[in-house]
Write a protein that binds this DNA or RNA. Structure first.
Length: 463
RNA sequence: UCCCUGCUAGCUCAAUGGCAGAGCGUUCGGCUGUUAACCGAAAUGUUGAUGGUUCGAGUCCAUCGCGGGGAGCCA
């Protein structure tokens, strides 16, 4: 295996004169009279290692197989590069071809490909410049998230992926069953008899770890989850996946102000972290994908988020003298066009909207004294819309029970959630952040299917 | 799920209802310490599928499939 110090990333910073072994996949090859140039990449950095092969230095058979897409090990001397583009290059003395790649059929060309085409070859797109950069950033972002919470004493909680409680929210859920679909057990009234199913009752893939993580917040104080989430909604947009990753912090002894403070610090931290960890990759995104990415990220890190209440936001929209496709009035849910107007035209930066009407928000959000609004907050970002949704939770037993009853939810299903308010309740708050939405923001990529290794969307679960 | 739009060579795209094209890639040759190199030549097609209209359909019509943009749902 390859150890620290042996990746191409390390070789590029290596000492001239040393003999090194470079392992990787050939990105391109250029031939001149008497010399060939092979760009080698092992995923460890955006920059390739330029391998220089003088005529006759390597066996002809091996040279024939050293084509775009081939996997090779090159042994040689690291030398200073006489040309621009790289500080050092590898002067080949020996080559081992692990696996060739027929140039006539290898689909990746030197020229740019569309994201749609690359998505169809998800087993090879990881070797392209764009997806190399995307997945290095994704990796750095995951580390940034854990670092942020660890530095603040948060406990990382693994909430369940399979859940038998259908009380997690309004999102459509995927069923999990081992029943024979061709021969379903029925009860007397003809309905499916789930007592015969694997868990003895209907089970689903989780749409959120929030309710579970609240249990841990009321024991470990500050906690977070970071894991996959599933939505069976028939959403076909560049911003939705059926399987995506979500980060959900939850803090005891915390109100909405503390929640917002953490959300802002969190976004700034992870952006800064990735900017420092992946400068080459971000520069590539800025050059080839979206030339506003770097400026936008710096701007977010350096400035404070805007804060408005829902009521103020509605007033701003009403004052705009625009004709909206969806009418604006107090009590209406904000639409994409409204969010975009606020973030892209009024404030031109992330905006935190708070205190929404209780009718358009979830039952567990803490009621304000005005009787009309709840302590909810959405962080809206230019271009991608809602990136964080959170709230202070209703910690008062009677108020929560009343809400569950008024919304005609299944009171019994929430028995343990209610008991958390009965035994040692505490004010607490949290939010959910879509991991891939942050990826869109960081990379400037336009489609969420291109920032996750293997996208799952309605009608599509390849690879 | 709704609205709009697209599907032609490996890729990106041309083609008034009338002979199926180009660039890139590939192969071969040339030139050059090259950087998405350059010059010349060659090979490459069930025009997404199924029906229909027509003397004749890549082009028009219908249905289906898949992609893209927008919307809804949301993270």
């Amino acid at each position: 295996m390859i150890h620290q110090g042996e990746y191409i990333r390390d070789i590029l910073r290596g000492e001239v004169g040393k003999t090194v072994h470079a392992h990787g996949w050939v990105k391109t090859r250029r031939d001149s009279k008497g010399v060939s140039f092979v760009q080698l990449n092992d995923g460890s950095s955006f920059q390739d290692l330029q391998v220089v092969i003088e005529e006759g230095a390597l066996p002809e058979e091996a040279m024939k197989q050293t084509t775009t897409g081939a996997c090779v090990r090159v042994t040689g001397e690291l030398v200073a590069s006489p040309a621009a583009g790289q500080a050092v290059e590898l002067k080949a003395k020996e080559i081992l071809v692990y696996g060739g790649a027929d140039p006539a059929t290898y689909p990746l060309q030197k020229k740019g490909h569309t994201m749609e085409f690359l998505r169809d070859i998800a087993h090879l797109r990881t070797r392209s410049n764009t997806f190399g950069a995307v997945f290095r950033v994704r990796n750095a972002l995951a580390h940034a998230i854990h670092n942020f919470y660890r530095e603040r004493g948060f406990v990382y909680v693994h909430t369940p992926i399979i859940t038998a409680s259908d009380c997690e929210g309004a999102g459509a859920m995927f069923g999990v069953t081992t029943l024979d679909m061709m021969n379903l057990p029925r009860n007397d009234s003809g309905a499916v008899d789930y007592s015969k199913d694997f868990f003895g009752k209907p089970a689903y893939l989780t749409v959120s770890g929030q309710l579970n993580v609240e249990i841990f917040a009321l024991s470990f104080t500050n906690v977070y989850t970071f894991g996959p989430t599933f939505r069976a909604e028939n959403s076909n947009t560049p911003r939705h996946l059926s399987e995506f990753w979500m980060i959900e912090p939850e803090m005891a002894f915390c109100d909405l102000e503390g929640d917002m403070e953490l959300a802002e610090a969190f976004l700034k931290y992870i952006i800064k972290y990735v900017m420092e960890a992946c400068p080459d990759d971000l520069e590539f995104f800025n050059k080839r994908i979206d030339n506003t990415v770097l400026a936008t990220l710096s701007q977010v890190v350096e400035n404070n988020f805007e804060h408005v209440t829902y009521t103020e936001a509605i007033r701003l929209l009403e004052k705009s003298n625009r004709t909206w496709e969806f009418p604006v009035f107090w009590g209406a849910d904000m639409q994409s066009e409204h969010e975009r107007y606020l973030t892209e035209e009024v404030f031109k930066k992330p905006v935190i909207v708070t205190d929404y009407p209780k009718e358009i928000k979830a039952f567990y959000m803490r009621a304000n004294d005005d009787g009309k609004t709840v302590r909810a907050m959405d962080v809206l970002a230019p271009r991608i819309g809602e990136i964080i949704g959170g709230s202070q939770r209703e910690e008062r037993y009677d108020v929560l029970l009343d809400k569950i009853r008024k919304q005609e939810l299944n009171e019994e299903a929430y028995w343990w959630y209610l008991e958390l308010r009965k035994y040692g309740s505490a004010p607490h708050a949290g939010f959910g952040l879509g991991f891939e939405r942050v990826m869109l923001y960081l990379t400037g990529m336009k489609n969420i299917r291109d920032v996750i290794p293997f996208p799952r969307t309605p009608g599509s679960a390849d690879f």
